[in-house]
């Protein structure tokens, strides 16, 4: 029990525990960060789905992401399909000595909502099948707008890959593999790296930047954001409770079957056949169980997000309290 509680509290602990990942951290070039940010911003609309390709290389235990390029928006009159676009782009970049290993993809992730979509799992599964080390980088434009750069790299755990390969998500396989929802994705820490030339450039830029640039994170009026993320987490919790209700029903039905069987046994009849059991309890598709698993993931994600949001807000409250109190003292003196 203590173990569970600890895991729930400290996501870092969980991260350190997963030793089966082939990479320890993702090293990202500053240029990639800026390119992702720019692309997601220009694609407009906070809720637009924005995606792109990450290029880089794998070096003993770390994944270096050195370049990236965006996917085009889908339009009606596409005369060239996505694969062609990717191939041509990678070829051109290769000609100017850019690393051309396709090590993953990035996606916009407003309010942290797209981590547990089926599509995300599907594409990440495909990427990891092709290149074991690949990651998906999720960028949250809303949080970044508030002043906190939010880039997170995830990959499916080996266990999740194994289960996805088998395509089986029944209670038995989950139990035998000791799968739980928090072992589905693992977060890989990101470190931003800059070459010396770029560091020199940033020193110059720093001089030209206004002092209060990028200080949005001290903004106090953040109730609307909190409201929004609470709303989405409420939706998730609703789904979770629906699932719990469903499970309750199943248990009741199982008890009913047991009673029935006992009755039949006492009468000397054979117990219920599997067909009869299935009539009472509809067997669950494996996709449904996966969806439920992902919903759990999502809820956990929202919970962590809101509590971190709330704790930083509390710190801001205390900050402003301190400021105001000194001011009150000062005006009293005057």
């Amino acid at each position: 029990m203590a173990n569970i509680a600890q895991r729930a509290i400290d996501p870092k602990m969980r991260r350190m525990k997963s030793t089966d990942s082939p990479i320890n951290f993702v090293q990202m070039d500053g240029q990639v960060v800026l390119k992702i940010v720019k692309h997601c911003h220009e694609e407009g609309g906070v809720f637009a789905e924005v995606q792109g390709v990450l290029l880089g290389l794998v070096m003993d235990g770390r994944l270096e992401v050195t370049n990236c390029f965006p996917f085009p928006r889908h339009t009606e009159e596409d005369d060239m399909d996505d694969m062609d676009y990717q191939c041509v782009m990678i070829r051109h970049l290769r000609n100017v000595n850019v690393d051309h290993l396709h090590v993953g993809w990035y996606q916009s992730n407003p309010f942290g909502s797209s981590i547990s979509k089926l599509e995300t799992v599907d594409s990440q599964f495909m990427y990891q099948n092709a290149i074991e080390e690949s990651v998906v980088v999720l960028y949250d434009p809303v949080r970044t707008q508030r002043g906190f750069l939010s880039l997170k790299a995830y990959r499916l755990t080996n266990l999740a890959i194994k289960l996805c390969k088998e395509g089986e998500f029944s209670i038995e396989t989950l139990r035998s593999n000791q799968m739980s929802f928090d072992k589905f994705f693992e977060e890989i820490p990101i470190r931003i790296r800059n070459s010396h030339l770029i560091t020199a450039l940033m020193c110059e830029l720093e001089d030209q930047m206004p002092v209060d640039e990028g200080k949005q994170f001290l903004d106090m009026g953040t109730v609307s954001v909190l409201e929004k993320s609470l709303q989405s987490s409420m939706k998730c919790v609703e789904d979770v409770s629906k699932w719990a209700n469903y499970q309750k029903q199943i248990i009741m039905k199982q008890q009913q079957i047991q009673k029935e069987n006992a009755l039949r046994l006492s009468k000397g009849e054979p117990p219920m056949t599997e067909e009869e059991v299935n009539k009472i309890i509809k067997p669950l598709g494996s996709l449904q169980r996966l969806e439920c698993l992902l919903n759990y993931c999502q809820t956990l994600n929202y919970c962590q997000q809101t509590s971190s949001f709330a704790s930083q807000n509390i710190s801001k409250l205390f900050l402003s309290k301190a400021l105001q109190q000194t001011n009150v003292k000062l005006s009293d003196k005057n």
């Binding site: 960060v33 970044t144 906190f148 931003i192 940033m202």
Partner: peptide, 14 residues
Amino acid sequence: DTEMVGLKACMASS
């Protein structure tokens, strides 16, 4: 704005 936030993060990491 978001680009500036990114740039700030790059600066901090260097």
